[in-house]
Design a protein around this nucleic acid. Sequence first.
DNA 1: GCCAACGTTGGC
DNA 2: GCCAACGTTGGC
Length: 137
Amino acid sequence: MNYWLIKSEPFVFSYDKLVADGKSMWDGVRNYQARNNLRAMREGDLALFYHSNEGLAVVGVAQIIAEAYPDPTADSGDWSAVDVAPYRKLNQPVPLALIKATPELQDIGLVRNPRLSVMPLSSEAFSKILELGQTDI
DNA sequence: GCCAACGTTGGC
DNA sequence: GCCAACGTTGGC
């Protein structure tokens, strides 16, 4: 089981929208590092869902339900998409400021490389954020 | 709305 | 293959 963090701008696609839709294709990634992370995802992996730009918080957990396939929204280039489904909404959103203020979370990609949109997380970091979000899964 | 950080592009 | 210029992302 691998753990991930995926980012979305909530006015483009929010966690609530994912819940409403039941599942979604995770497409439009145009960054090689992020794409390679998408390709490393396995069915059943869990991903924290982070709202960037507005909200600035981890709000829920999503599950990977289909592994990487060619991104149909790419008209050229070698890009990938996966399918995700809602898994659990956090009881308490975990704001970026809290993550930055938590010593155990100083090494995660969100802090180290804030512009990467798909990044791996250690199981420790994943659990810690769930704990901050007062959520058991 | 500004600006810093990073990735990508293109000239040499 | 290097590096400057540019575009994009995302926090503040």
